[in-house]
Simulated assay, not measured.
Amino acid sequence: MNEHRYRTELGAVLQKLPGVLAKSTNYAHATQSPDAWTRVADVYSVVYWVAARFRWMHLAELAVMKQQLASERAHPIAATVAARDEAGAFLNSGDFAGGLAIVDRAVVEAESTLEGRDRAYGLGILHLRGLTLAGRIKDKRTAQQHIDAAWRVADKFPEDIEDHGIHFGPENTAVHVISTTSDMEDHRGALNTADDLIRSGLTLPATRVGPLHMNVGRSRLALGDRDGALEALEEAWNIAPEMARIHPTSQELMRVLTSLHRRSNPRLTRLAKRAGVPF
C-alpha cells in the first residue's frame, strides 16, 4: 500500500485501505504485540494521509485519534509519528500555532523516550512538520530553528530513508525547506535550493518530488516567470498526476496561469484539460 502511496496512486490506496486496516487490526488484537500495533498505527497514518490529500478533514482527525490509540500499545516511535500526523491535521485545518504546540511537546517526549535511529528519525520528521507550520504563519525565527534542527538530524543520514511510510533525510529536508522558503516569500532562495537539489539528483518518490515541482512553479510565478511556472506544473503532473489534480498548490497555479493568459498556448490548454479546468 505504501508503494502505491509513494507513486501517488490515490485510487489504489483507497481501494486497499479497508482490507489492510481490518486485517492488521484483527492481527494486532490476536497477538497483542508491539510490532502488530505499530503496524496498525502506520495504517491509520496512511488513512490520515489520503484523507488530508482529499481535504476530508473529519476523517483525517478521526484517523489521527485511532492512530494515537494504537500507538499506546505499539513501539515508542509510533507515538512520535502519531504526533507528527496530529500536527498535520492542525496544519490542514489552518491552526498553525496549535500544530506547533503539538510539535514542541512531541519533540520533548521523543528526546526522552526514543533511542538510536528511531530517535534521529522521529526528531527529524517532527522538525520538518515544525518548519512547515512556522512558515505558514511567517514566523521566521521559529521556522529557522526547526530548519537548523532538521538539517542537524539529516546529517546523521547519508541518504534518505523510509520508515512508517514517511521519508526523512537530506533530500526531504531540502524539499520541506524549499516549500517553507516559498511560504515566507523568499522565492529566489527557494529556487536556488531547488536548483541545487535537482542538479544533485533526486532519489525521493513521486509523493515528494511532485510537490517539489509545484513549489518551484509557485516561486517562478511569484517572480514573473510564467513559462517557467507552467514548465514546473507540467513536470508535477507528469510525475504525480493523481496528486496534482487535487493538490491546492497545483490548483492555485492552474487558476492563476489560466487567468493571466491572454493568447493561445497549446501546452496550457492541454494541462487545463487534464485538470478539468475550463479554459
Rank of each mutant, 00 (worst) to 15 (best):
A229V: 06
G130C: 01
G19W: 05
K273H: 11
W151M: 10
S250D: 10
D186E: 10
S259E: 14
A106Y: 05
L100E: 06
L126F: 02
Q144N: 09
M1N: 05
R208I: 08
N215E: 13
G11F: 08
G217F: 01
R39V: 12
P241E: 09
N192I: 10
L253F: 03
A150N: 00
D183F: 13
R73D: 04
A74Q: 09
K156I: 07
L221W: 03
Q145E: 13
Q145S: 13
A30H: 07
E252W: 14
R53E: 13
H176S: 14
A83Y: 03
E61W: 13
E61Y: 12
V277Y: 15
V177N: 04
T258I: 11
K16C: 14
G116V: 05
S200M: 03
E171K: 04
R218Y: 13
L59R: 11
L202D: 02
L233D: 09
K273F: 12
D118C: 01
L260Y: 14
K66I: 09
D104R: 09
V108R: 11
R5V: 13
V81S: 04
T25V: 10
E159M: 08
S250L: 06
E61D: 14
W151T: 03
H4A: 14
V108Y: 12
D183R: 11
I102W: 02
W151H: 05
A97T: 13
N238F: 12
D155T: 13
E9W: 14
Y6E: 15
R129M: 15
T181H: 05
G99P: 00
M254L: 10
I239D: 01
T269A: 13
